[in-house]
Computed example of a mutant assay.
Amino acid sequence: MTEADDVIIDGDLPDAPPAAAERSVSPHLAALGQKAKDYARNARAENTRRAYESDWRQFSSWLRRQGLPAEPPDPQIVGLYLAACADGKKGGASAVSVATLERRLSGICWRYRQLGEPLDTSDRHISTVLAGIRRAHGRPPVQKEAIFADDLRAMLAVLDNDLRGLRDKAMLAIGFAGGLRRSEIVGLDCGPDQTEDGSGWIEIFDRTTATTGDERAPSAATSDGGLLLTIDGKTGWREVEIGRGSSPATCPVAMLETWMRLGRITHGPLFRAITRKNGGVGAERLTDKHVARLVQRTALAAGVRGNLPEGERKLAFSGHSLRAGLASSAQIEEAHVQRHLGHASAEMTRRYQRKRDRFRVNLTKAAGL
């Protein structure tokens, strides 16, 4: 993006001669400026953008306390900030993890790029400090507990069969069977191009039979149908197929159909809030935080991982528990799981697999020992 583009996005025009400056901005250019800002805003997922904005606010607050300027970007100052975060603050706040620190640096870089003043993270004041922090404080990431099929059945059983319960059952089942992120669950619409804030839509297919073309010949294949999700996720657009289950009580598609029928959901957001006034279905889309709270609440109520201390159990589950549960439970080729989850690499998929057949490939014996 050029310097002129940056200025237009900010809503102004580049410096011009006095005669030109006196002319007002045309409605067409003003509309293009607003459209450009909208496109720039959509360059990042909403959750990522909120996180980056929070990172910048924390960095700006630290700069003000130290009496340091925010501009122009100074790698040495950023290196000092990283060291301060890694060591904690005098006020008693705990030090942040390496993963959080790397995310904060990404947020700072993102903000400086928006200002047209890129930050050079390869500068030794940043790269060397960050490498030292990783070496001193780095540790394996803390993973949330996975929700397996038996766990999910127990969680579904603790929910009521009112509208709220039927909605939550459908969310849990679809989230698990689709291996979806929590934002992908609540971002679903009933169809394409129905809302501006939607990030995907659904299509429900009935049982179908594919024939050979000869009416006398037996059918070539029979499908029970299912649910097709078209999702705009972190790695771009992907399609997710969710087949019908063996029992209506545990079938994600049947649960979704029940919720849509009784909730009269035919257009717009798929999962919506229940109104407090009359207990009916509202028009407002649920937030991704609802998914996290739902997983935590039902997992605790169902006694999932009851062997853990109570304090640990409260922190053991999140929206990603559903995604990790599918990745760990599906007994199929890893490539299928990777494609289903929308991962860019097989290594990322393996991070989600809490249990798998370790040592199935024995390189020691294969090498002759």
Rank of each mutant, 00 (worst) to 15 (best):
L166M: 13
Q76F: 12
T128F: 12
R207H: 10
L256Y: 05
G233F: 05
E215K: 01
G79C: 07
S219G: 05
T230A: 11
P73H: 06
R164V: 09
Q66V: 06
A20F: 04
R313V: 04
L308M: 12
Q338P: 00
P75G: 06
A301T: 12
A36G: 13
Y352H: 10
I147M: 03
A36M: 15
I185Y: 08
T195L: 06
D120K: 07
Y39L: 13
Q66A: 10
G226Q: 05
K234T: 05
A177L: 09
W56Y: 11
I174T: 15
A366Q: 15
C109D: 13
I332S: 00
I147N: 05
G325M: 02
L68R: 13
P72C: 07
M255D: 09
T349A: 03
Y352E: 08
A146H: 07
S246F: 12
H267K: 10
E22L: 08
A177Y: 09
A344H: 00
A177F: 07
A154S: 15
A154H: 14
L326V: 02
D214W: 06
L229Q: 03
E22K: 10
H340A: 00
I174W: 04
P248D: 08
E347A: 14
W259H: 05
S61V: 08
S94V: 15
D206T: 08
D74W: 10
R272K: 08
S54W: 07
D193A: 10
L130Y: 03
Q76T: 15
V291L: 07
Y81K: 01
K90I: 02
L163C: 08
D357F: 03
M171S: 12
A83C: 05
V98Q: 02
N307G: 08
E312D: 13
T266R: 12
T250R: 07
G33K: 15
Y81S: 00
M155P: 09
I242Y: 06
A273W: 11
L29R: 13
G88W: 03
L29Y: 13
E71K: 14
V253Q: 07
R124Q: 13
R339W: 00
T211P: 01
L163Y: 11
G88C: 04
V7G: 02
D87K: 12
Q58P: 03
R182I: 10
H290I: 07
A45G: 14
R293D: 10
S328Y: 01
D6R: 03
E241G: 14
L119R: 01
R358T: 14
L119I: 03
R264C: 11
Y39F: 13
G319Q: 02
I274K: 03
A45M: 09
K169T: 08
E71R: 13
I332D: 01
G92F: 09
R134F: 04
G88R: 04
L163K: 04
P118Q: 01
A86P: 04
D232Y: 08
V240H: 06
G187H: 07
D5K: 01
L172D: 01
L80P: 00
E3W: 01
V304K: 05
Y52D: 11
G233C: 05
L101M: 09
A177Q: 07
K234C: 06
R323Q: 02
S183D: 14
D55E: 12
A136E: 08
E333S: 00
R167N: 09
F317P: 01
H267W: 07
